[in-house]
């Protein structure tokens, strides 16, 4: 089958690959570009583990065709840290023990990052709403909710 060129910006770097038509963004990121931070859970858009940002909007990369992302800016958890310095959300998840097996964590963090970018001071209900598309089997969610709230507080303190 003829392959299709896809070209987009991944975490600030220009990337170009040839993929089979119908290749998901998840498969392109993981198998072609070596970014395994988005996880393949259900592969049908219900678990949220594959969540990434496409042009600032949250997208389920398992349901997004790679070829529809030409020219887009794509962000994944792998691109959140600034060199050695972790993103405030990553620090909050680590300090708050908000991960156990860690499989849902990249999707949770992207969902939370999108929330904090549009609403730097979210309420608990805002956080619950923001992560409601992401399934976690280990933590019981409470540590994740607390980590997101604590990252928001850390941000507002450092901004002040």
């Amino acid at each position: 089958m003829a392959k299709i060129p896809v070209q987009f910006t991944l975490n600030g770097s220009e990337r170009a690959e040839f993929v089979e038509s119908g290749t998901t963004l998840l498969a392109a990121l993981r198998d072609k570009m070596g970014d395994t931070s988005p996880k393949g859970g259900c592969h049908q858009g219900t678990c949220g583990a594959c969540t990434v940002m496409v042009d600032g909007e949250l997208r389920l990369s398992c349901l997004t065709m790679a070829e529809t992302c030409n020219g887009a800016h794509i962000r994944t958890t792998a691109g959140l840290a600034n060199g050695e310095v972790l993103h405030p959300l990553q620090r909050a998840f680590e300090n708050g023990f908000a991960a156990q097996c860690g499989f849902c964590t990249p999707g949770m963090i992207m969902a939370a990052a999108a929330l904090l970018e549009r609403n730097p001071n979210p309420s608990r209900d805002d956080v619950v709403e923001a992560i409601s598309g992401n399934i976690c089997r280990c933590t019981g969610y409470e540590p994740i909710i607390q980590a997101v709230l604590s990252a928001a507080r850390a941000n507002s303190t450092s901004a002040a």
């Binding site: 023990f97 156990q100 089997r137 280990c138 933590t139 019981g140 969610y141 409470e142 540590p143």
Partner: peptide
């Protein structure tokens, strides 16, 4: 203790 607490919170939910 922190990992124990984490597992107990998750377990209670489960």
């Amino acid at each position: 203790p922190k990992m124990v607490e984490q597992q107990l919170i998750g377990g209670s939910w489960m």
